[in-house]
């Protein structure tokens, strides 16, 4: 065994994340570790509900820094993502002072009138924050191209003020769930990890971590049920968040054995199945069969 190096190791990351209530698979822990060690953005892909966004939250809690989140959507533009001038205040200031000339312009385009949006805010923090760019595939190509520029230089140019360099380099996490193909350029800039539904042991660990009140026997049943449910042909497979809701619902209903009461189980399924056709597919009989197999 080589001498332990000073740097934090990936297994340490795993332990630290677990302390924040996030159980990470080894591959994911390694990706997070490298992203921290090499200062590269991390691109997380995977189905909805597997805990991609949660990684960022746990990481921010672990490092004790701020989490800055940019939710992407179609039509997201620079004014929403980077900065915007506070026009109302600028107009008022012009009216109030009545002055003209260069001095006024310099004042109008100063910090006081600048509205920071997530990207600008992220590079101007005294303590490096975690920057979460959520669902990047929802934003359009133009924004992706701009983002590339920010991510490679960590500087933003505001024509009126000049170039603002990053005070600290944020740890960047991007998530995507495949609504659109991301450009190769963006993929190449990032480290990559595919987040899959957790395996049985991992998911059980997650459940016990998040809902310590659930008895071991019931926890085993819940995980078994959810895992077999995912193998069914569903439109929307239940994610980890849904599983936790399900467990909370069962706890709230006072259930301690899944197979005992079909009606209650069917009612609690509302937390797992989110489309009409999925509800129709998983009838009481099917649910009972799955629960029986899980037990």
């Amino acid at each position: 065994m080589p001498p332990r190096l000073i740097m934090t190791d990936w297994t340490d990351i795993q332990t630290d994340l677990a302390a924040q209530g996030y159980v990470a698979a080894p591959d994911l822990a390694m990706a997070v570790h490298l992203s921290l060690a090499l200062g590269r953005p991390l691109l997380l892909e995977g189905a909805a509900g597997v805990g991609k966004t949660e990684v960022a939250r746990a990481l921010a809690a672990m490092k004790g820094c701020e989490l800055i989140r940019l939710q992407c959507y179609e039509g997201l533009d620079a004014a929403q993502a980077i900065y915007e001038w506070n026009y109302q205040r600028q107009l008022l200031a012009i009216r109030a002072s009545g002055e003209t000339g260069a001095g006024s312009e310099a004042r109008l385009f100063s910090e006081d009138y600048l509205l920071e949006r997530p990207l600008l805010r992220a590079i101007r923090q005294p303590v490096a924050p975690v920057l979460l760019i959520d669902e990047i595939d929802r934003a359009d190509e133009e924004f992706e191209a701009y983002l590339l520029e920010v991510l490679s230089d960590f500087q933003i140019t505001i024509p009126e003020m000049g170039t603002l360099r990053a005070v600290t380099r944020p740890m960047v996490i991007l998530t995507a769930n495949g609504t659109r193909d991301l450009s190769d350029a963006l993929r190449r800039r990032c480290l990559y990890a595919y987040v899959d539904y957790p395996d049985r042991a991992t998911e059980l660990a997650i459940l016990q971590k998040r809902c310590p009140g659930v008895s071991d026997a019931l926890a085993g049943q819940i995980i078994g049920f959810v895992q077999t449910l995912r193998k069914e042909d569903l439109e929307k497979k239940p994610g980890v968040a849904e599983m936790l809701d399900f467990a909370a619902a069962l706890a709230g209903l006072g259930v301690n054995d899944l197979t005992r009461d079909p009606v209650v189980l069917q009612a609690a399924l509302a937390t797992l199945l989110k489309t009409q056709s999925d509800r129709a597919n998983i009838t009481t009989e099917v649910a009972q069969r799955l629960a029986g197999r899980a037990a």
Partner: peptide, 12 residues
């Protein structure tokens, strides 16, 4: 393996 994986991979 894990380290090379997250460097080399770019898609699912």
């Amino acid at each position: 393996r894990a380290a090379l994986k997250c460097v080399a991979c770019g898609s699912a």
